[in-house]
Each structure stands twice: as C-alpha cells, then as structure tokens.
C-alpha cells in the first residue's frame, strides 16, 4: 500500500442513505462527509439510532435490500465502492477492509475449531495448509492467546469472552487489511478486559500499519484510542475534528451535552445526573432547520428554520452549528 500513503483509506463525501418503509422513507444518513487517513484511528460516536451501523454497512455495501443510497460516493483508496461489481466487493470485504463485531460469541462459528476458522480466511492464498496454520498460530500469539498451538484445536465456547474478542481481532488482521472497522468491540467485556483489548488494538495498529474506524458510544474509549473523532446525531455528522479539539473545546451543543452526561467525567458525587431532554427526532419527518434544535438549550433565530451549513473552526475541526458562524 506504499503508493497510497497520502491518499485517505476511505473518503466519504455527501453520502445519503434512505430506507423504504411502509410509513415512508427513513432518512437514515444525510450528507455525511468523512475521511479516514492512512494509519489513523477515527472514532465515530453517537447514541443508538444515530446511523453508526448504517454508515459501516454502507462502507462494506451490506445494506438491507430496502435501502437506497441517494447521493454521494465512498472512495476506498482510488476506487468508488458504490460502483464496484460483486467480484470486486468480495475482494474488498475481509481482505482489504475487515471488521470486528460487537459480540464475539455470535461472530464465531460455534461448531468449527478456532484454528480452522482462522485458516479458512486465507482461502485466497495459495500457500500450503501448514503455512496457513503457522500464520494463524503466529497471529493468535500476537493477540496474546497463551499456548496458541494447542488452543487452535479448541472451539469458541472453550475461550473466555476477552479471549474470543482477541481471536476475532486476530482473524480480522489475517489478511493484513488497509482498514479495520471495529463496531463497539468491547461492549460485551468487563472494564479490565476492555482496557486490555483497547491496548491491543493500539499495539496492532502500529505493527500492521492499518487504519481503524472505531465505532462506540463510550467517550472514554474514543478519547483513549482515537486520533480523530466524528460525532453523529440522527443521521448527520454534527461535528468532527482532532481528538484534543473535540474533547477540550467541543463546538456543537450536542457534543458538549454528551460530554457533560458521561458519569466518568463528573468530578463531584452528585444526586442528579445530567441528561439530554427530549428524544431523537423521527427520521421520516425531519424537523426543518437544525436537526438538534428541538433539544438544544442554546438555539436562537435561524436554528429552527434553516439547516446549518458546515463551519470551519480550524483546519481539522468542523461543526454544523450556527453558534460557530462568526468564528
């Protein structure tokens, strides 16, 4: 991939996705712009229903049959994923872009040994079976599975939750992908194991030189792992920027509220935890103006009538909010 070091691994521009339902079209993603630079970790944060999963599924072209991409493009290095043919997509999935899912138990096949599942991924390679097994063993060692050689004959249920997630990460990296998508990879794990998995991802990113798209609603993990952060709300990217900008000087009221609500950030013990009042809007009938305005405490004149364009705070920090209009 050395020729592409300056080209972003993923470049999404103006992506919109609708789902056709009986009640009408659900506008799940609207005008999303996002780039994942080479060898960087980009975090996507947002509450349930904000379009995180739709975004991932669009990148891998795994959207449900009632979905349609109404505008935009997704470029992987120099090709548009949206124009790829099925054989090209097969080449992409699992090989150039791979994925670690939320629940490692459902991601692994319970009736096939871990070693077999790992070598099966290498079906594209022409190496001998022994060479493939060796590679699988090395990967398992790299993610910290003790006695990798013996444990390759074990089934997924014989591993603990943390070990299973390590195996999933090892599998995702078997083909040396350019992009690893991690969809809430630690929600099923305890804090101690979560810290270990995050640590592992950091180490592996450096040794494999791949980019990571890390999707989570845990702000602490995003701060720990990511270089850049994208904040999504109700199908829109409301703010994006470097991790320091975003956590230290958030510009969008939603980002600010989200940070205030995190109990890990509240210094004093309190009886009343902060919340964001109101609900996520119905994505079939969108409110005019800013999507966050019905719940926003600092809304003013233009917010409820026209959608805010993207304002530039600094080179990497962009926000969709009229409050940032004057700089």
């Amino acid at each position: 991939m050395s020729n592409f070091n300056n080209v972003p691994v993923i470049d999404i521009s103006n992506l919109s996705v609708d789902f056709q339902t009986q009640r009408g079209d659900v506008r799940a993603l609207r005008n999303v712009d996002l780039t994942i630079p080479h060898n960087k970790t980009v975090g996507v944060v947002g509450e349930s229903g904000c379009g995180k999963s739709t975004l991932i599924n669009s990148i891998l072209r795994l959207l449900a049959s009632n979905a349609s991409i109404t505008s935009g493009s997704i470029r992987f290095l120099d090709t548009n994923i949206l124009e790829m043919t099925d054989p090209e997509l097969n080449d992409l999935r699992g090989q150039k872009i791979s994925m670690v899912f939320q629940d490692p138990m459902t991601a692994l096949n319970p009736v096939i040994t871990v070693g077999k599942q790992m070598t099966d991924i290498l079906f594209r390679d022409s190496h001998s079976r022994n060479a493939k097994r060796e590679k699988a063993r090395d990967m398992l060692q790299m993610v910290g599975i003790p006695d990798a050689e013996d444990r390759m004959n074990d089934y997924p249920h014989q591993f603990s939750g943390g070990m299973r997630q390590r195996i999933c990460i090892a599998m995702a990296l078997m083909m040396n992908p350019a992009l690893l998508i991690a969809d809430e990879p630690t929600t099923a794990l305890d804090v101690t194991l979560e810290a270990q998995v995050i640590h592992l991802l950091q180490e592996l990113k450096n040794s494999f030189q791949c980019s990571i798209l890390f999707v989570s609603h845990n702000l602490g993990l995003i701060a720990e792992l990511c270089d850049e952060v994208v904040v999504m709300y109700a199908g829109e990217v409301v703010e994006q920027g470097g991790v320091f900008d975003l956590f230290h000087s958030p510009a969008h009221p939603y980002t600010q509220r989200l940070l205030e609500c995190d109990p890990a950030r509240i210094e004093k013990s309190t009886d009343e935890l902060p919340t964001i009042s109101g609900r996520v809007p119905d994505l079939i009938e969108l409110p005019p103006g800013c999507i966050f305005s019905p719940r926003c405490v600092s809304k003013f004149e233009p917010c409820s009538t026209q959608p805010p364009p993207e304002f530039v705070v600094n080179e990497h920090h962009k926000v969709r909010c009229f409050l940032s209009q004057n700089g």
């Binding site: 804090v191 101690t192 979560e194 810290a195 995050i198 845990n218 702000l219 602490g220 993990l221 995003i222 701060a223 720990e224 991790v243 320091f244 956590f247 230290h248 940070l259 995190d262 890990a264 950030r265």
Partner: peptide
C-alpha cells in the same frame, strides 16, 4: 481501568 473521556489522561 475505567477509560477517562479526556485524551490527556
């Protein structure tokens, strides 16, 4: 082990 929502930490 609790991750802190602050990249300085």
């Amino acid at each position: 082990a609790v991750p802190q929502p602050d990249p300085n930490k």
